[in-house]
């Protein structure tokens, strides 16, 4: 198939970004997806880091969102107060699309980035929410990058760090959250979305060489596969721009 698995994931996520979007991203392939979108189909999208840097050039890949590299060519640098206010504020917040990662996800798109096992004495401790819970609480669209594995697509999260659809239809509204949260899951096998009525995850697109059945085998819970179609693989043009402009030194892909 065309492109490696990280390249396909990056392009699938980049296609979710519309021109004019404000893209909240971390480092690694989430940042590459934002850069790919900017170079391919969304030239007026704005890359935004929770550390406070807006619209950086990103000519060198940062190691962290606080890295001095996120300041090069940026239009402004503030702090966390400004950055999160931009997302909580509905005027700018409704334009934000976030790209996140997680250790676990459930059928409603809720994420765990905190701990595996009992919270008070976990088997595995992760870094924590960072700004993940904030952005998933505030903005209408979030993409999550996941590796498709049974231990990651779980029936019950060990800890609910960032809100997707919580426990189903109407739950975000009942909790007091604006609509949105996690709306798209991009994995190494497929793209998953959430049903408007049930708020449950379903299989939307599967990659070349992958079957819907194989996707199901890599999840602890079953999802609707009746709407699944083959994904359009990355085009030569998309890959050329991704490789040539976004990561020319091939440090990430």
């Amino acid at each position: 198939m065309n492109g490696t698995s990280p390249e396909i994931m990056t392009i699938m996520a980049a296609r979710e970004i519309h021109n004019g979007d404000i893209v909240f991203c971390g480092t690694g392939i989430s940042m590459l997806a934002a850069m790919a979108a900017k170079n391919i189909s969304a030239p007026d999208s704005v890359i935004f880091f929770e550390s406070g840097a807006v619209d950086a050039l990103l000519e060198d890949l940062p190691w962290a969102v606080s890295d001095s590299r996120v300041m090069w060519g940026a239009n402004s640098t503030g702090g966390l107060m400004d950055a999160f206010a931009t997302m909580q504020n509905r005027i700018t917040g409704n334009r934000v699309i976030a790209i996140l990662g997680a250790a676990q996800i459930d059928i409603y798109g809720n994420l765990n980035t905190t701990a595996i096992g009992d919270y008070s004495k976990p088997n595995t401790r992760f870094a924590g929410s960072g700004g993940g819970c904030d952005v998933a609480s505030f903005v209408p669209r979030c993409i999550v990058f996941m590796h498709h594995e049974r231990r990651k697509f779980v029936r019950k999260l060990d800890y609910l760090t960032s809100p997707g659809n919580l426990d189903g239809p109407g739950a975000r509204r009942r909790a007091g959250l604006p609509p949105g949260g996690i709306t798209c899951v991009v994995t190494n096998m497929a793209v998953m979305r959430f049903d408007e009525d049930t708020k449950e995850m379903y299989l939307d697109r599967f990659y070349p060489g992958i079957t819907p059945q194989q996707v199901l085998e890599h999840m602890e819970f079953a999802v609707d596969i009746s709407r699944a179609r083959p994904a359009d693989p990355p085009t030569e043009e998309e890959l050329r721009i991704l490789r040539g402009k976004c990561d020319p030194r091939r440090m990430q892909l």
Partner: peptide, 27 residues
């Protein structure tokens, strides 16, 4: 969350006992 910690310092800086946010509802 990051915003909550930032707001908590801001509340301390402002001399108010707390600040409100919509972050983390339901989590």
């Amino acid at each position: 969350s990051n915003y909550q910690m930032t707001l908590r310092f801001a509340a301390g800086a402002m001399g108010v006992p707390f600040l409100p946010t919509r972050s983390s509802l339901g989590t």
